[in-house]
């Protein structure tokens, strides 16, 4: 099996590859739907994800200048209202004025395309670039785990690679980039990751190594994860003969799945057919 010519590497698919190469193969290369429950309780989880979506949208509305009172009125339950008030009271400050919200960036690295959708990029031209990611998961993960997440390595790297696109006259060094995770579960303690030239080099090598591993597996096979406990939170568990019942949502590290596909919006009207 070959990587499709239009394949883009993202934090979602690389994280999946790290956790289980077979899951990566099934989900992104074979595109095999497997509609089992991922984690329980289902409806609560769905409501939680929905809240997360609305919260991201409210933040986006705030960042583009819609009136705060009108945005806040959309908070349909106490949890969402709490998140919103926490955001207003303790969002990372001060952020540079120039903001890019829900912004997709892509770049080739050693012949492979990487892509990411950023919640917020705040830029002070020539000075600094700050990435802010709003996390609505139930718990704040430990810093050590966060630092190992693909997102923490891919996002600043990609921003650095794409920094010339914002203003060709200005070049940024990795030291001018910072990534901030802000948590609804712990709004007063955001996690900040300063970037550096050394880290950028390490990340570049690391990402390349990962995609080369993917390439290698396309020539051989994609093994199942050796950490079987992960399978209870994977929809493919029955396909891989690794369990029956879905695990508990509390065991998931990151409940959000960012949509980092190519950004194309179409309407629902029917195609011409007579």
């Amino acid at each position: 099996m070959k990587l499709p010519p239009d394949f883009s590497f993202s934090q979602n698919n690389l994280q999946d590859f790290l956790e289980c190469p077979r899951r990566f193969e099934l989900r992104y290369l074979l595109r095999q739907p497997w509609p089992a429950i991922q984690s329980q309780p289902v409806v609560e989880h769905e409501q939680h994800l929905r809240r997360g979506e609305i919260f991201h949208q409210m933040v986006q509305q705030h960042q583009i200048g819609l009136p705060v009172d009108k945005i806040g009125a959309q908070a349909y339950d106490q949890t969402l209202l709490g998140w919103w008030e926490d955001y207003l009271g303790s969002m990372p400050q001060p952020l540079p004025e120039h903001r890019l919200v829900e912004h997709t960036l892509q770049s080739a690295h050693s012949g492979y395309r990487f892509i990411a959708k950023f919640d917020l990029i705040a830029i002070q031209p020539g000075e600094k670039m700050i990435i802010v990611d709003w996390k609505t998961s139930r718990r704040k993960p430990p810093r050590a785990i966060l630092s190992q997440r693909i997102q923490t390595r891919l996002y600043p790297f990609l921003l650095w690679k794409c920094s010339g696109a914002f203003d060709q006259a200005i070049s940024y060094s990795p030291e001018q980039i910072e990534m901030i995770y802000w948590f609804t579960a712990d709004p007063l303690s955001p996690e900040r990751f300063k970037y550096s030239q050394k880290q950028a080099e390490r990340d570049g090598e690391y990402l390349l190594e990962l995609v080369q591993q993917v390439e290698h597996h396309t020539q051989t096979y994609f093994p199942l994860t050796s950490q079987e406990q992960r399978c209870s939170l994977c929809v493919y568990r029955s396909l891989c003969n690794r369990g029956i019942t879905a695990g508990n949502i509390d065991d998931e590290i990151d409940e959000e799945v960012d949509d980092d596909r190519l950004d194309i919006a179409f309407d629902q009207i029917g195609e011409t057919e007579f």
């Binding site: 010519p5 239009d6 883009s8 949208q57 986006q60 509305q61 583009i64 819609l66 009136p67 009108k70 945005i71 009125a73 959309q74 912004h103 997709t104 960036l105 892509q106 770049s107 080739a108 395309r113 690679k161 794409c162 010339g164 696109a165 190519l262 950004d263 194309i264 919006a265 179409f266 309407d267 629902q268 009207i269």
Partner: peptide
């Protein structure tokens, strides 16, 4: 999707319906 592009963002490909839906979602309040 199949050609190398300069590093940066991506163009928006949309229909009028898609543009409407997107802006309604964003500016609903």
């Amino acid at each position: 999707t199949q050609n190398p592009l300069p590093p940066g963002s991506l163009p928006t490909i949309v229909t009028l319906g898609g543009l409407s839906q997107r802006t309604i979602q964003l500016f609903w309040p």
